[in-house]
Amino acid sequence: MKAITLKNVKKEYPGCSVPAVDNLSLEVAEGEILTLLGPSGCGKTTTLRLIAGFERPDQGSIALAGRIVTGPGRWIPPEKRKVGMVFQDYALLPHLTVGENIALGLKKETRGRKVMEMTALVNLQGLENRYPHELSGGQQQRVALARALAHNPVVVLLDEPFSNLDTDLRNYMRREVAKIIKAAGTTAVFVTHDLKDALAVSDRVAVIKDGRLEQVGSPVDIYRHPETEFVATFVGKSTILDGVIGPDGLSVKTAIGTIPCAHTHNHRPGRQVKVSIRPDSFELDPAGDIWGTIKETIYGGNEIEAVLEARTTNGPVDLQVHIHPEEYIREGTELRFHVLPEFVAVIDL
């Protein structure tokens, strides 16, 4: 049984020409961590709020653990859905202590035991009597998570959980939160616009654009084998080129030459396609076929992001490349590359 099933869910806001969520269907398996990834305003938070029951869909149905919570003629209010929610600003009640926040809505008999269990799970023992404002951002987030998990929810929803944390804490909390959720054995849905959040915490990532599902897959899938141009360019950087599937079915003929490609969707040779090449696919090679001049560089410490203006028979083509930081590169440097097949993907036209 799936923990969450969304079927053809549609949500429009009055006066908007474009629906916030457009005919979205999605399944989340029990115990899975799924992330809804997309730019701001793409409908990912609305999707989360539809699952939680803070918004009503115009069409479609949502089921939690096999029970339909919203659908034609059916509406279960949020308090009866057994959904835990971790808000972007944590939404801890300022007039209650950590323990009281976690105990909210719990039955008297189980309260004490549950609070102890939860503070142990999120590693906050001894802070039960503090008030939220006396905690750091990371600790507040743990309290919010503990409060959501205390009810043994069918699913925990996390809305941009890391956006209020600074970089170091953010890296740490990504691991921590994923670990806690896995330890609790709960299903979780994250919402984020940050690629690194999504790739780090998720079992699967669902990329959303304008309320529509673009692609669902494991982080590796999404990064290596984007299926649409939007996924290719939103999930990391990519160069998109027109091409034709080569006769062997494992290469694509493009303006910069024939490129080996591990992921061609089994298209038949000769078909017109677009191909996405990740910057990591271009490897410096004095004997490579691709050559050109560096147009822009951004020194990133662990790598150099650069734009290479490649010379081709049809004129210059800009390529996004990554270069090892030990190289001494500046604008105007002439370089040669070849392409590794791992990070090349054919995109459906």
């Binding site: 939680a52 029951g53 803070f54 209010p77 949020p78 308090e79 009866k80 859905r81 959904v83 835990g84 929610m85 808000f87 972007q88 600003d89 939404a91 801890l92 009640l93 909210l104 809505g105 409060r147 959501a148 009810h151």
Partner: peptide, 23 residues
């Protein structure tokens, strides 16, 4: 008072009138 606090209350099992009286 952020409406997120109301929603937190709802997701923790309070119906609207309890959200009003307790939060």
């Amino acid at each position: 008072v952020s409406p997120r606090l109301d929603e937190a209350g709802r997701s923790l099992g309070y119906p609207p009138w309890q959200v009003i009286s307790r939060i």
